[in-house]
Design a protein around this nucleic acid. Structure first.
Lengths: 355, 355
DNA sequence: TCTTGAGGGA
DNA sequence: TCCCTCAAGA
């Protein structure tokens, strides 16, 4: 039995806006920790991972893990029927094949109920490459969206190059060739330096949007060039240059999530005020002048990606003011949006060679 | 000779927005009382009736009745050429085949004139079933629009059920099944009780948007369960369960209109202040919090309608903040929008059986 | 399949 | 009023 109430239906709507473009059907894995979704697009080039923390819900109850096989098109239709600020309750029986959605106006004079058929979906939980990225770019999600949309009108792919100069997005098209250079914003750098003095603060900024302690550490590495740690990740890591993701067993997936959840909570408690400070710095950057770009780099990187997918990813801008791009040569790009109730992350394999 | 000036061209534009979706050509019947239009959609399932009172015009002159056979597509095009707040003057000669439209900016520094070819249209003035509805639902026109649009994305038809619980809109679709329950708003009910004490007030609220005294009385019945009166209506009434409307002679139509016009004026004079009070109650309800629903009911009803048409009807929301739904089992639904210069009413035959 | 135009929503 | 999405046509 799943019963979960979100205070704003808009969260779900926005989440689906981008995901439905990538995959038609997907399992919402519900367990005590919250709701997860992982799916690859049909061509196995892009992967999307969504997490909604249980404590991001106004009410959350899930007695035992349930996979909800959902046709995202249908779910989108049903969500369209919710007003953005409606209270939204999801319900599913343990063995049922129906997902019920209840929308309640806050004034309680309107109650809408929808029942959606569920389906069985092959449940290959996918292994997400755990990568020690060399670069993290934090920027306005709207700016990222603008850039990929602009370049998408010129060509099919974009080369993303990060150097001391900044981050450059370049695209070649038949009609024209274009590139956009974003320099580290002075203001952003200053704020960064201030808060960066305390390494824990800085690391927490990342941890906040990371489930896996390992990744948090790696983010630290991005800043301080610490050595790698925790190379026991069950999946591809390091020199992964393949364009496709691999499936792993479902059990491993579950384990990983709940395990890291615990660790995350421990850390959060330890330094939550510092975290807030760091978060504030990021927020300031986001608002402080419409273009703050924050770059952390241990290595120059230069990769090429399909713009089609980046344009789809960038539709998640409505979920968060900022987006983080994590890069490392020959490894899938990670595009991450973090919001109050969880996150949505996209992984996109780079184009190899000159295609 | 017709000469009629509206202070805002927007009124005409908005009127046509929905009508042009239902019918391609229609007669604007002009007489001393104003301008009327009645037409059925091609499938004879829906009927639209528009009334613009002569005194809703800044200037109105019509020496003798003229039918203006208009292609609504053309008229829409011509109206697109007017700015919303332009003063708009319609002119037609008694025997001409041209309708002239003049648009004047209020600062009088721009005058545009358009001439539109008229056409002969078979002038079956249609008999509108005069019905003693069992239910009147008054709600925000925007909310009605939202509901039918939402359900239209799920299925083809909607079941409208009114009971003590409230009014429920339910639709079944392939992907999902949904229903929306609107409860009588407390605030709306209170206001209603206050003004409802005086039956005349209450009835006037209806009369104001009714031409036919008979209908006004029946609306009273909705409240008080008075017996039927005036069963001499020339058209189908009472147990009409047929899905189509019937034509009647033009003469009868004209007679009816002018006759009821007179009665209406008499009544208006008698109780205009009470009327204003009642109107205010409705306005308050409409504005008092974005969802006031007001239900008057003498009988449970349960009917099914094609959403396609309701969606078209609901485009008239721009004409009025509120809409009234009048229902009775096995009888066409009346959807009525009343605005300063007149009204637009839609009648839609219910679906019979399980189709 | 891609492009353009219209309609609806923010 | 502008932007975006959806639908129809090439």
């Amino acid at each position: 039995m799943l019963e979960a109430t979100l205070n704003e239906a808009a969260t779900l709507k926005r989440l689906l806006d981008a995901v439905k473009e990538l995959v038609q059907d997907a399992n919402f894995e519900c367990n005590e920790g919250g709701i997860n979704l992982q799916a690859m697009d049909n061509s196995h080039v892009a992967l999307v991972a969504v997490k909604l923390h249980a404590d991001g819900f106004a009410l959350f109850r899930c007695d035992r893990p349930i996979p909800l096989g959902v046709n995202l098109g249908s779910l989108t239709k049903v969500l369209k029927c919710a007003k953005d600020d409606d209270k939204c309750t999801l319900k599913a029986a343990d063995d049922g094949d129906v997902l019920s959605l209840k929308y309640e106006a806050h004034r309680a004079d309107r109650v809408a109920e929808y029942d959606m058929k569920l389906m069985d979906i092959d449940a290959d939980t996918l292994g997400i490459p755990d990568t020690d990225y060399d670069v993290r770019v934090t920027m306005l999600s709207s700016e990222f969206a603008r850039i990929v949309r602009d370049l998408n009108s010129l060509g099919e792919s974009v080369r993303i190059e990060v150097s001391k100069e900044g981050v450059r997005f370049a695209s070649d098209g038949e009609a024209a060739q274009g590139n956009i250079l974003l320099k580290q914003t002075e203001a952003a750098r200053e704020r960064y330096e201030n808060y960066g003095k305390d390494d824990d603060d800085q690391a927490e900024e990342v941890k906040e949007e990371e489930d896996k302690p390992k990744k948090a550490k790696k983010a630290k590495k991005v800043k301080k060039e610490e050595g790698l740690e925790d190379e026991d990740e069950e999946m591809v890591s390091g020199d992964n240059d393949q364009a496709e993701f691999q499936a792993k067993s479902e059990d491993e997936g579950e384990e990983e999530v709940s395990d890291s959840e615990k660790k995350k909570r421990k850390r959060s408690t330890a330094s939550s005020s510092a975290k807030k400070k760091a978060k504030k710095a990021i927020d300031d950057m986001a608002e402080g002048g419409g273009g703050g770009v924050h770059i952390e780099m241990t290595q120059h990187v230069n990769l090429t990606f399909s713009l089609k997918y980046l344009v789809i990813f960038s539709k998640s801008a409505s979920l968060s003011d900022t987006v983080q791009l994590m890069l490392k040569n020959d490894v899938p790009l990670l595009v991450s949006y973090t919001f109050g109730q969880g996150y949505i992350r996209y992984y996109l394999a780079p184009k190899i060679g000159d295609d």
